[in-house]
């Protein structure tokens, strides 16, 4: 996951080496490196860089797929329309809300699961890890359908099973209201991706040296003190990486919303807006502009995380 980031020490060595001529062996290694990485690099350019550039270019046009002759250059006109439109800001709000709530809940649940996995007896550890990982192995569309059918008023069982909970009765139509729909969407997202976050946190937990916690224990620290003064500070890097990865993923949420409400009743997210504009409406220009803005939002989240919160991607790997 963090293979793209090299520890800083390697960087300085490479810098020093650059001044000296390469030996035959170093040249050979470099050539081998390029030969090994080259094809992947070309594929990456073709499937990532090219569409991004094309989308950026298309976003400057008023271009509808079914009216190719009417295509005209309008500069940043599409961006003007989008950024002054209520729909964009509402969808951004919904997306951010889903991102923030799911990441926080996943972090808490994921940490609890990581602790359970960490402390579990050796005999049940394998079974426990497999059980916790099952939701993560399910295809998102399949899990979205499963949750949809469970809560749907016509086919679901949730209303009948949980009618003793205040607010839930057999006539509750979960997908007819904004908040009830968002609840199901977020619940299914949390169920599906908590295992991922717990795995990342488990790796972080494993890095905390046992001597530290033991020493703290000998010094008379309570469980809470050991957790907040020893364990958590020592796994900050792992936590931040988990938060960043999940936040980026959650921000691009699509499948759950698409399957459950298709954006109805104020549950639309930005990815769905981009999809509906370019694919359903066939407005290639406007749709590209939405996609470019979505891309900029993702870059912004990365920037904030790495620069402001100083997430150290290498730290999570234990290569520090």
């Amino acid at each position: 996951m963090s293979t793209t980031v090299k520890p800083s020490s390697t960087g300085t060595k490479a810098g020093k080496r650059a001044a000296q001529p390469y030996s035959e062996r170093a040249k050979g290694e470099r050539r081998l490196g390029w030969l090994l990485a080259g094809p992947a690099f070309v594929v990456m350019l073709a499937v990532t860089a090219y569409p991004i550039v094309q989308a950026g270019y298309d976003s400057l046009f008023n271009y509808r797929l079914t009216a190719p002759s009417e295509r005209e250059f309008i500069g940043l006109g599409n961006y003007g329309v989008i950024l002054t439109d209520f729909v964009w800001w509402r969808d951004l709000g919904v997306t951010l809300l889903i991102t923030v709530i799911t990441v926080i809940v996943e972090l808490i649940l994921g940490f609890a699961l990581a602790l359970v996995m960490h402390k579990a007896l050796k005999s049940v550890r394998g079974l426990l890890r497999t059980a916790i990982l099952v939701p993560y192995g399910i295809i998102t569309v399949v899990s979205a359908f499963a949750w949809f059918y469970a809560f749907d008023i016509n086919s679901g069982y949730v209303n009948n099973w949980f009618d003793w909970v205040p607010g839930i009765d057999p006539d509750l139509n979960w997908f007819a209201g904004t908040w009830t729909s968002l609840f199901v969407i977020m619940a299914s997202e949390i169920w599906k991706t908590t295992p991922f976050i717990s795995l990342l946190l488990l790796a972080g937990l494993a890095q905390v040296p046992d001597e530290l916690t033991e020493a703290a224990e000998v010094d008379g620290a309570t469980w809470w003190e050991r957790m907040s003064r020893v364990i958590l500070p020592n796994m900050k890097a792992a936590i931040m990486v988990a938060v960043l990865f999940r936040a980026l993923d959650a921000f691009r949420i699509f499948d759950n919303v698409f399957i459950m409400t298709n954006g109805a009743f104020g549950t639309e997210v930005l990815s769905l807006l981009a999809y509906r504009t370019s694919i359903s409406r066939l407005e290639i220009g406007m749709g590209s502009a939405v996609s470019v803005l979505l891309f900029i939002c993702v870059l912004l989240i990365c920037f904030i995380a790495i620069k402001l919160f100083k997430v150290d991607l290498a730290g999570a790997r234990g290569s520090k």
Binding site: D152, I153, N154, P170, L172, N173, F175, A176
Partner: peptide
């Protein structure tokens, strides 16, 4: 009915 807001042709038949 309570399911009106999400009712399509199939569910109105049911």
């Amino acid at each position: 009915g309570p399911g009106l807001a999400t009712q399509d042709e199939n569910f109105s038949m049911i």
